[in-house]
Simulated assay, not measured.
Amino acid sequence: MGNALQKTIQQLKSDNREFFHMALSVDCVIFGFDDNELKVLLIKSDLEEFHDEWSLLGDLVMPNENLDSASYRVLKDRTGLDDVFLEQVYTFGDVNRHPAGRVITTAWYSLINIKDHQLSLAHNELHWHPVNEISTLAFDHKKILDTCLKQLQSKIDEHPIVFNLLPEKFSLRELQSLYESIHGTKLDRRNFRKKFFLMDWLIDVNELEQDVPHRPGKLYRFNADRFSDGKKENVQEAQLH
């Protein structure tokens, strides 16, 4: 009797046609840090409805593709990058978020050192943009960007992920400037430095900055060994690149 109540896959699809005609996509929010500004990688939209508007890097998920595979494909195809860690943040499914129909997208974000990653520009309209200068984007990409930024802001005080945005050696001035650009606010210099020395996240490399317009400051590097024992999650996050 139980078998009589069971549906075949064909019956399921026939009874729910509208549910099997939705598309999935991925959008990648790639953060970088340059000229004391937090930046995000954007591309000009190729849809007529969003003519001359900027958008995040994204694409539809192929029928035979996993979500994470799709995100890395997008990144590789558009930038040539294949050695960065992408973290899934949130899924956006507003009914009218895409003009072509129902498209549900999953957002991923990553942090890279701009100077260490030479982008292979497959499109001449791919550029880094200061996050604080972005007011609108195509689709609902401003909402996606803001969500990923909030995720970043919520993690940087407890997880050492910001070091992926910096060169191997950096000054405390650079580090504070990075935190200020992410939080969008000025931080007290003395309290900021005290906090980092207490956390033991930094190692003094006994070198000074070179060719800077101000008094050279000491250089530091990230203390990766600090997260090598019993903190698997932090180790992964500390090695996003």
Rank of each mutant, 00 (worst) to 15 (best):
K76L: 13
W128H: 04
L67S: 02
R17F: 10
T79H: 01
P216H: 09
G101R: 02
V131H: 03
I144S: 02
R73I: 12
N132C: 09
L198F: 09
S110R: 00
G80T: 11
H98A: 06
Q118G: 09
L145F: 01
G230I: 05
L119Q: 04
K115L: 12
A23D: 14
L166K: 03
S110N: 05
D68M: 11
N132Y: 12
A224W: 08
Q118R: 09
I112R: 01
W128S: 02
L56M: 07
R173Y: 12
K231P: 02
E168M: 10
L42Y: 03
G101Q: 08
A138E: 01
R97I: 11
L60N: 07
W54V: 03
L86W: 04
N3T: 11
G2K: 10
I203H: 05
L137Y: 04
S55H: 07
H21K: 12
S69A: 15
D34H: 09
P63C: 07
H241R: 14
M199G: 02
I9P: 07
K155S: 14
V205H: 02
R190E: 15
D229V: 13
L198A: 14
F163N: 03
L38W: 06
H21E: 15
V26K: 01
F33I: 05
R73A: 09
P130Y: 00
K169H: 13
K39Y: 02
P213H: 05
K186S: 13
R78K: 13
H51Y: 11
S228E: 14
M62E: 14
K143T: 15
F85R: 08
N206A: 14
Q10P: 01
K115N: 13
S71A: 15
L198G: 03
R17A: 14
K155W: 08
F50S: 05
Y220V: 04
R73N: 08
L165E: 00
L42S: 05
R193D: 14
G217C: 08
S45C: 13
I156T: 04
V103L: 09
R73D: 06
K155D: 13
L47I: 11
V29A: 04
E180A: 06
K232F: 14
L119T: 00
F20W: 05
Q151N: 12
D200E: 13
G93R: 10
V84L: 12
P99S: 06
D35G: 02
G2F: 12
V131M: 07
F20I: 03
L75N: 06
K115Y: 11
H123S: 12
L24W: 08
E18Y: 08
L219E: 00
N36D: 15
L175C: 03
E49F: 10
D204L: 05
E158F: 12
N16A: 01
N66F: 11
F85V: 11
R97G: 11
F50N: 00
R190Y: 13
S69E: 15
K195H: 11
V95F: 14
D77C: 06
S135I: 07
N164I: 04
F31D: 07
I9Y: 10
F170G: 02
G184W: 02
T147V: 12
L5K: 09
S177W: 05
T105Y: 03
V29R: 00
S177Q: 14
E53H: 07
W201C: 06
K115S: 15
H98M: 06
